[in-house]
Nucleic acid binder design. Structure first.
Length: 388
DNA sequence: CGCACCGGGTTCTGCCATCTGC
DNA sequence: GCAGATGGCAGAACCCGGTGCG
């Protein structure tokens, strides 16, 4: 999957380079509405023709069409942009092209987040520099903008961005953490500093409430284990904490370990989804003759079980049970649930073929990489099989 | 060498709602 | 009353390999 994505990225990079070679830089003469480098939003417009309300900026429309922007989509998303008298699309496009973005990528960015054309070059340069403090290359940033234009363009407050970076560093997150955070959840950085601070404070409060001695470490651990936590509402995380507390009835120190350990990854789930999964897991466990304590043990040792939707989980469990594995074995080695039902099914077939005995050998063989599993099967295959 | 334990990697936007300031 | 800024939501797993031990 990751390889596929990487390949696609390479292909699109290649495509964009080809495009630039074919068309050269700035292929069309755009109608200038604002000279590059100047701030365009504030203007008296005294001797300019007044644009009445509901009239769209004609030159903007023309430029966007020339740039290949999906104007229909853009208009649907942010109609206000089209009524602005002064916009900066030409300079914005030039800026992005200078950073290595292809024309296609630029068009995609503006189509999805039209307000980008209202940003000044100065502002963009500043913001780009701040991102470059975290990313090593422009290409990385372009890839993020292509993926999520809104994360970069939604806020015009570079000071806020600076505050966020300083704040995250002050939490003890290292360069690698910041890099992962910005690459994975770029929205974190356009949150208001205050919002991020509130979440961190909230996490620290939970720690203190549970009798933890190092709230800062606790918050940092959760953030670095769950990069999405800062783009969730405190309401959601709080609800999830409450749900888990109420249903698992663990001791305070067990809860602390759970939240700052593997359980961090399920704190940002939609609360309804978490509740639903918890409930259906309970139902399933009961139907398999397990007790409450078994489920508790399962969730504590492998919280990601709550990440799996009811249908998937049920199918997966049945698949294992039908393959001759016991519930007890699954409870002992829950990591087998990590693997897709499809993968498990195929492995069970292979193991059956070579006469693998789960009672004797356990089920660890299912929790291994494809390479290792295949090597294992190879070793277990009895005869050298000279004839085909 | 084979195995179990364990942690890490990948991944998450695009839309709507609500405020705020002019 | 507008556009801009910001908050919040739904959606829903899978796989790999280092390491240390026997």
């Amino acid at each position: 999957m990751a390889a596929l994505r990487g390949m696609r990225a390479l292909l699109s990079l290649h495509r964009s380079l080809t495009l630039q070679r074919n068309f050269g830089l700035i292929p069309v003469q755009l109608t200038s509405t604002c000279s590059p480098g100047r701030h365009c939003s504030s203007t008296t417009g005294s001797d300019e023709p007044k644009q009445s309300v509901n009239t769209e900026n004609e030159s903007l429309l023309k430029n966007l069409n020339l740039m290949g922007v999906d104007v229909k989509m853009a208009r649907r998303r942010q109609p206000g942009v089209f009524r602005k008298v002064f916009t900066n699309e030409q300079a914005v496009a030039q800026f992005l092209q200078g950073k290595g973005a292809s024309l296609k990528v630029i068009a995609g960015i503006i189509s999805r987040y039209p307000r980008a054309v209202t940003r000044s070059t100065d502002h963009l340069e500043q913001r780009w520099e701040l991102w470059r403090n975290i990313f090593k290359t422009d290409a990385e940033i372009v890839a993020i903008l292509d993926r999520s234009p809104e994360s970069f363009f939604r806020s015009s407050d570079n000071g806020n961005l600076e505050k966020n970076i300083a704040f995250l560093i002050s939490l003890g997150l290292n360069t690698k953490d910041l890099h992962r955070l910005l690459a994975t959840a770029p929205r974190t950085f356009s949150n208001s500093f205050e919002l991020n601070r509130q979440m961190v404070e909230f996490l620290e409060d939970i720690c203190a409430e549970l009798g933890g001695t190092n709230p800062e470490q606790f918050a940092k651990a959760i953030i670095s284990r769950n990069l999405y936590i800062l783009i969730r509402s405190t309401k959601r995380v709080k609800t999830n904490v409450d749900i888990l507390r109420a249903s698992l009835k663990l001791s305070n120190s067990q809860l602390l370990d759970l939240f700052q350990g593997p359980g961090a990854e399920i704190l940002d789930l939609s609360s309804e989804y978490l509740k639903k999964n918890l409930y259906s897991l309970q139902q399933k466990m009961v139907s398999l003759g397990c007790r409450k304590a078994d489920m508790k043990k399962l969730v504590v040792s492998y919280p990601l079980v709550l990440y799996i939707g009811p249908d998937t989980l049920s199918t997966k469990l049945d698949c294992l049970l039908n393959g001759g594995i016991t519930v007890k074995q699954i409870l002992e080695k829950p990591k087998v649930l990590d693997y897709s039902t499809q993968n498990i099914t195929a492995r069970l077939v292979e193991l059956k073929r070579v006469g693998y005995d789960f009672r004797k050998n356990g089920i660890n063989v299912l929790d291994s990489s494809r390479k290792r599993f295949e090597a294992k099967i190879e070793r277990l295959t009895p005869s050298p099989d000279v004839t085909d």
